[in-house]
């Protein structure tokens, strides 16, 4: 499982580190960076056992084989700065707050709110990615609606079951990324942004989408996106929680 190396010589300076103030929530951190005019993607790196396993699974996409800073990715809906905690979130979580119900009918897409990832202790790593103006919010919204009816394009139910098997340690299930099976929320995002004309993970040759590939895209593939007239990802991040932790 490899990703292509970008030819960029330096990281994307429009996607920069912004520290979170002591005692602040993730919502507090996001508020000064919020751009209501762009399509926004949320990356989080969690600390509980499932998130830990997901971060380890993505280490194969990193040159140093260290676990990823990221365990989950979601699409943010329209919101004002004041109501950010209630900003709608479109995702495929492996631990949805209200349970799974019968996910097949919606191709596993879940609706929740940003406040779910507000706790900076549970989710110390956070990034907000803004897609370029080429990706119009209305187009993406239509793509999200169509995603729920297009299992022939991407079967998120299959991905969800495979990743639950890995996360819960069922049987002898290995790392699904090594079989080219992307993490469901990242695969959903790649599909809907692709449908809107934006290649979210140009460093991947397969559909093994995952938060780490999206992170690398924001950090290193800005020149590629500009060369292909798509425009670069912009935004901010903060990654205080690194694995493995030092003594």
């Amino acid at each position: 499982m490899y990703t292509l190396s970008s030819r960029a010589r330096s990281t994307n300076n429009e996607f920069a580190e912004r520290k979170r103030g002591r005692g602040n929530t993730n919502i507090d951190w996001l508020r000064p960076h919020w751009r209501p005019d762009r399509v926004a993607i949320l990356l989080v790196g969690g600390t509980d056992l499932i998130h830990f396993r997901l971060r380890v699974a993505q280490s194969h996409l990193r040159n140093d084989l260290t676990p990823s800073h990221w365990s989950h990715v979601a699409l943010l809906g329209e919101s004002t700065t004041a109501d950010l905690h209630a900003a709608p979130l479109y995702e495929i979580s492996l631990a949805p707050a209200g349970g799974f119900g019968f996910p097949t009918a919606s191709n596993c897409l879940q609706n929740s709110a940003l406040e779910r990832y507000g706790d900076a202790k549970l989710f110390p790593n956070i990034a907000i990615l803004y897609l370029p103006p080429l990706v119009e919010p209305r187009t993406l919204k239509t793509a999200v609606e169509r995603f729920q009816q297009q299992r022939i394009v991407i079967d998120a139910v299959q991905l969800l079951l495979v990743w639950l098997g890995y996360a819960w340690g069922a049987g002898r299930g290995g790392n699904p990324l090594l079989d080219g099976l992307g993490m469901p929320s990242a695969a959903m995002l790649e599909t809907v942004t692709g449908a809107a004309g934006f290649d979210l993970t140009p460093g991947l040759e397969s559909r093994a989408s995952c938060p780490e590939a999206i992170w690398q895209s924001a950090r290193w593939w800005h020149e590629y996106h500009k060369e292909n007239k798509e425009g670069a990802i912009t935004g901010a991040f903060y990654t205080p929680h690194r694995l493995p932790t030092s003594e």
Binding site: V153, G194, A195, G197, F198, D199, L200, N228, K229, E230
Partner: peptide, 9 residues
């Protein structure tokens, strides 16, 4: 073929 970004699947 399906279009995605500047390329295709």
């Amino acid at each position: 073929f399906a279009r995605t970004g500047a390329g295709v699947r």
